[in-house]
């Protein structure tokens, strides 16, 4: 008697058709096409010969030193930025969770870094880090921390941290907003109960606030990690992977391989590796959050 496709199924199918078509076209098809491409040696400089090479692009990749350098750089960048984002966002969220005059204005101001384009952000930090006239040099010089202007982004040791700083500055607002939500969702009787039990401010923070924020915290860490490992814009504008290979991260490596060496097959293979890493990361993300949808 049961019909698999009743009125509900038919209307749902109709409503979902456009979105499914779009996502098939712009997400699923490309990602599969990319897999297909990664089995060929495609050089745009040699358009007529695109041999099928099985997994050569992948094995080449894993034997390529620069690839492993880029992985190491990406890991450094992600670990540094994500931990900084987590700490700063936690502090800011705790601050904005207090009730004080000017809190509204402060949270509006906080949206500024989130809103500005990444390119403008990059341009701004490039100017701040500028070796000749930048604000960083200016302020450190005026405060006598340095006795001559430094070429900040030219310093192999410091570059990746300076870029991470620019990334953190832009990502903190989003992380803060997400953490604030989990802070706000802590029922106030929990605090009152802890208070009645004689817990100090610090104990209340450790035993009530932190555990309650754990899911929100996980979300922020995973989300920001996903953003960090795929980040491209700052590297393109601030350093172009340099100096040397000091900021040669994976996304930059993919870009160079694909659009400078015009080697699309290995570019596709690499982006596939990146996509798989992201998927693995977001698996937990989907498992924990998909259920609630």
């Amino acid at each position: 008697m049961r019909r698999l496709f009743g009125y509900e199924e038919r209307s749902a199918a109709l409503f979902l058709a456009p979105v499914m078509a779009v996502l098939m076209g712009v997400a699923v098809f490309p990602i599969l096409y990319s897999l297909y491409l990664s089995f060929f040696r495609i050089k745009l400089t040699r358009p007529n010969r695109t041999p099928f090479v099985w997994f050569d692009n992948y094995t080449d990749l894993f034997t390529n030193d620069l690839f492993w350098v880029s992985v190491a750089r990406t890991v450094t960048f992600s670990v540094v930025s994500v931990s900084a984002i987590a700490v700063i966002a936690l502090l800011v969220a705790l601050l904005l969770n207090q009730d004080f005059r000017g809190r509204r204005i402060l949270s509006t101001i906080l949206l500024v870094p989130w809103a500005i384009p990444y390119v403008a952000n990059a341009l701004m930090w490039k100017w701040i880090y500028d070796s000749g006239y930048g604000a960083l040099n200016g302020i450190l010089y005026q405060m006598d921390f340095i006795d001559k202007y430094m070429i900040w982004l030219g310093d192999q040791e410091k570059t990746i941290f300076l870029i991470a700083n620019a990334f953190v500055w832009k990502e903190v607002p989003l992380a803060t907003i997400l953490l604030l939500v989990s802070l706000k969702s802590i029922p106030s009787d929990l605090y009152q109960a802890a208070r009645v039990d004689g817990a100090s401010v610090w104990q209340r923070f450790v035993h009530v606030t932190l555990p309650a924020m754990k899911p929100g915290f996980m979300l922020v860490m995973i989300y920001e990690t996903m953003m960090a490992i795929r980040h491209f814009d700052l590297f393109f504008i601030l350093t172009e992977g340099g100096p040397g290979d000091a900021s040669h991260v994976l996304s930059w490596h993919i870009y160079v391989e694909t659009f400078r060496n015009l080697s699309f097959g290995s570019g596709a293979a690499m982006s596939y590796v990146l996509a798989l890493v992201t998927f693995a990361l977001s698996y937990t993300f989907i498992r924990t959050l998909g259920r609630k949808v």
Binding site: M1, R2, R3, G6, Y7, E8
Partner: peptide, 19 residues
């Protein structure tokens, strides 16, 4: 809610699939 099995009649009309 859709009827999973059996018949739902309004007067003599089967309405199982009528939205």
């Amino acid at each position: 809610e859709e009827v999973s099995d059996g018949r739902l009649m309004f007067d003599d009309m089967l309405v199982n699939y009528t939205p």
